[in-house]
Amino acid sequence: MSTNASALRHARYVLGENPVTAFAFGLFVLIVLAAILGPSVVPYDPLASNTSRALQAPSAQHWFGTDQLGRDIFSRVIVATRLDLFIAIASVALVFMLGGLSGVAAGYFGGWVDKVVMRIADTIMAFPLFVLAMGIVAALGNSVQNIILATAIVNFPLYARVARSEANIRREAGYIEAARLSGNGDARIVLTQILPNIIPILVVQMSLTMGYAILNAAGLSFIGLGVRPPTPEWGIMVAEGAAFMVSGEWWIAFFPGLALMLAVFCFNLLGDGLRDIVDPRRRT
């Protein structure tokens, strides 16, 4: 209880000391609100086209303008938040489990488990990550689930390595030895003693990779993978607006791109701030 209170105090201190982290936190709240409430608060139906209002510049009526089919871009950008955030969170949660568990197993058991996990991680690292993600989606099929899976796989080495080194350090720690001597099995020790201690570090890793996951998923949908029109999603909206950049209708691609950028920026800053809270030593 007291450690919780002091962690909270430390968190408040970091937020107060660091206005940038506070700003990122504010942005994060906005993004989450948009993801939850988005569809019910936007002024227009994000899918309703109206060709008589096509390609209108931003105005009081259409804050972000309208696209080639006359859809309201503001509504589409806000509604898209849920899907983009879902893809990122799902992929990060997936890799958190896959990478975290196999990394802990590698670090705790060592031996051949370690060899296999690290060989897989090294092999993934031998590819340019986005290229590998493209290959995976192409092979498994063009769907949102596979984008999530591909994004998780390319992040696997990062998680596996962090978890492995943390588990490795703790393997010989006194409290683990004590648990072993009192007759606990390996599985029990890993689940009750090692994992809970590594989770804060992996959570920081999650927030640091959220930004990358969003970028990766948006990049894949930008080249036409996964999400299909007319579904509102930032990457695909930028792709749809791309052709209009050369004729001057900048707003079609600009606003979804800006949303994407702000979301990634927010998670990067938040990740840095969170790392400062969990592990003040690694402050840069």
Binding site: G219, M245, S247, G257, V264, N268
Partner: peptide
């Protein structure tokens, strides 16, 4: 170096096209 990592590369490209071409 803080903002740069947040820029989606396709978005930067399109912005450059808009500014320098259009």
């Amino acid at each position: 170096s803080t903002a740069g990592v947040s820029l989606p590369v396709f978005f930067t490209g399109l912005l450059l096209v808009y500014v320098f071409y259009y």
